Amino acid sequence: MPAFSLEPEQIAWCGELRTLAAEQLRPLAEKGEPGHVNRALVAELGRLGLLGRLFTSGALDLCLMRESLAYACTEAETALALQGLGAHPVHACGTPAQRDRWLPKVADGTAVAAFALTEPGAGSDAAALELRAEPDSGGSVTAEPDGPAGWRLTGEKCWISNAPEADFYTVFARTTPGAGARGVTAFLVPADRPGLTGTPLDMLSPHPIGALDFDAVPVTADDVLGEVDRGFRVAMGTLNQFRPSVGAFAVGMAQAALDATLAHTSRRDAFGGKLKDLQAVAHQVAEMALRTDAARLMVHAAATAYDEGAPDVPRRAAMAKLLATETAQYVVDRAVQLHGARALRRGHLLEHLYREVRAPRIYEGASEVQRGIIAKELYRDVEAVEESQ
């Protein structure tokens, strides 16, 4: 299927999701408390079968879900996305026992997942993680039956979505000091492990974000996701799938802001006519639409590349997230400007989007990091061509 064209069934499904989000999910979102997990909303996402689709759908379907939900209810979109981000490593790399215990609960909305990668001193440079996974009984830790197979996690994580209220965390810790990305291991850590505590952080965006403190938290070989010292692959594999859909979230917000602007400028009287009759306004609206559609196309192209197993997924995913999140920031800001002071009043759609749109330019790799990934991949291609000549 071409990335630039959706099937009629997909278009209809997106419309159904928008209606569902507006009529069933938004009322639950409005009853939630900002900064806390809205478990009623998560449970409804599970009841509707949307959480289960996280593990059966491809990257393009994930993008369509996230854009459609974001258009009508950003809280529902974020709740769905965080379940996927936290649980995807379990789905992709977990043992049968790990999958059987946690994935059905994630899918039905009775267990809340979280992805714990970022640290106070290791945000954009994820390979610089300092959370230590130290052998529990001394010596090297292995998964062999005749060797010790336990660690103690000591250190901090911060800016973790759904913390400290999640039921389990995908945690990335350093098992081999000084090894960079090659010495990181992914662990599945239930929230009730002794020594694991958390603190909520008061943030601009309304979804829950917190810090985690690990005070010699015990984990075993049964908690490892994937292979020891290969956890960075788990993290990057998850991010490569979810980065285009972060772009889809941004596109959904941009489209909502654009549609609100079209309605407002068509009705608003100004200077003897409607706002839309002013060329300066009409051209801004045209630019907003142009950038939104361009971002959507790049998101769909990146997701399709992921689904087809293309070799350039990291570059495409980075491009999609970068363009879409920067575009959404531009579109929402222009929408606020064209609405005037009314858009800054608490409770206005654009006031809500203005707070929501800022964070995606930072999380899952800041815009500057995406540019670095793109450049690295481009020069790698150049080097490959030169070596083959």
Rank of each mutant, 00 (worst) to 15 (best):
L17C: 07
P89Q: 08
A79K: 01
K31N: 15
S68T: 04
S68P: 07
G86K: 00
A43D: 11
L54D: 05
V42M: 07
D61F: 10
G46R: 01
T78Y: 04
V42W: 00
W13I: 05
A81I: 06
L50N: 04
A70C: 13
T19K: 12
G58S: 10
P34V: 08
G35K: 04
D61E: 15
S57G: 14
L17D: 04
R53L: 09
A59Y: 01
L50S: 06
G58M: 10
F55V: 11
L54T: 06
A29P: 02
P89T: 06
L69K: 01
L17G: 04
L28P: 05
R66M: 15
L64Y: 03
C73L: 13
P27W: 02
L25P: 03
L51S: 04
C14D: 06
A59P: 10
G58W: 03
M65H: 11
L48A: 11
T19L: 13
A72K: 01
A12W: 07
Q83K: 09
A72S: 14
R26P: 08
L20V: 07
G84L: 04
E23I: 06
L45A: 02
L69F: 03
L54Y: 04
L69C: 11
G84N: 05
C14V: 08
R18K: 13
H88W: 15
A70Q: 07
F55K: 08
V90P: 01
T78S: 08
L20C: 14
L25W: 00
C63Y: 00
G94M: 00
G49Q: 09
T19V: 11
L69S: 02
K31S: 15
E30R: 14
Y71S: 12
R26S: 13
L51P: 02
G15M: 01
A92D: 14
T74E: 13
L25C: 09
L51H: 00
L54K: 04
G94C: 04
G32K: 05
R53T: 09
L80Y: 05
E33N: 14
R53P: 06
A79H: 09
P34M: 11
E30T: 12
A21H: 02
L54F: 05
E67D: 10
N38M: 08
A92N: 13
C93W: 12
L69Y: 03
E67F: 02
E77G: 05
A87K: 00
E77P: 03
L62S: 14
E33D: 15
S57Q: 11
E77I: 03
F55D: 09
A79W: 00
L69D: 01
L50A: 08
L82F: 08
